[in-house]
């Protein structure tokens, strides 16, 4: 009994909010692997709300999806209290990397070699969670440095440091393959 208007509304909101929602889920997750579950469940809940309440229910669609995400996060980690967010123990970096431009971070050409995907992935998995999150928010969720810093509650300087350092390291290790 689902009206097509609901799908259209869902499409619109999904496309508009996906990056922010995935970034916020990344910021709050205990593991990157959890993000897809959390994001998927968030939109499933949102879709259910559209079905139950109609497309005019939420005055602020983006805000409403964010609200749903919050609720999903709580439920997701319910009973798994040991999985603390590891960001709380971070200390500020003093690296002088604040003048690096976003564009300078793009150093790889797109590779058609599928092997490189798994290799990049393997290297990423060796990194600390904060680095993984920054990497994911930058490349997966298309967040800006400033936005990542705000979402993770860390300085922009730290974000840039992590990104620049990781990409440089990856280039050294994998440059020949990509």
């Amino acid at each position: 009994m689902i009206n097509k208007d609901i799908y259209a509304k869902f499409d619109e909101v999904y496309d508009k909010t996906f990056n922010l929602i995935s970034a916020m889920a990344t910021a709050k997750c205990a593991r990157l692997e959890d993000v897809k579950d959390i994001v998927q469940e968030t939109y499933a809940e949102y879709f259910n709300t559209l079905k139950k309440k109609g497309i005019a229910y939420a005055q602020n669609d983006g805000g409403f999806v964010v609200a749903v995400l919050r609720s999903v996060l709580f439920k997701h980690y319910k009973g798994r209290e040991n999985e603390k967010n590891t960001l709380v123990s971070l200390t500020p970096y003093e690296e002088n990397v604040s003048d690096i431009e976003d564009s300078a971070l793009s150093i790889f050409e797109v590779s058609e070699k599928k092997e490189s995907i798994s290799l990049v992935l393997a290297e990423l998995k060796k990194k600390d969670l904060l680095t993984q999150k920054i990497f994911a928010m930058f490349y997966y969720s298309d967040m800006k440095i400033k936005e990542i810093g705000a979402l993770l509650e860390v300085s922009e300087s730290l974000v840039k440091h992590k990104l620049y350092g990781t990409i440089t390291e990856l280039k050294l290790k994998l440059g020949g393959m990509v």
């Binding site: 996906f18 995935s22 990344t26 990157l32 692997e33 993000v35 897809k36 994001v39 998927q40 976003d102 564009s103 971070l105 793009s106 790889f108 797109v110 590779s111 490189s116 995907i117 798994s118 990049v120 992935l121 990423l124 990497f135 994911a136 930058f138 490349y139 997966y140 298309d142 990509v178």
Partner: peptide, 19 residues
């Protein structure tokens, strides 16, 4: 280009494909 497809695809292995 910020959106390096290689990185994005790598991350999709972990975080899922948008569609």
């Amino acid at each position: 280009m910020k959106n390096n497809e290689l990185f994005k695809q790598s991350l999709e292995e972990v975080m899922g494909n948008k569609n």
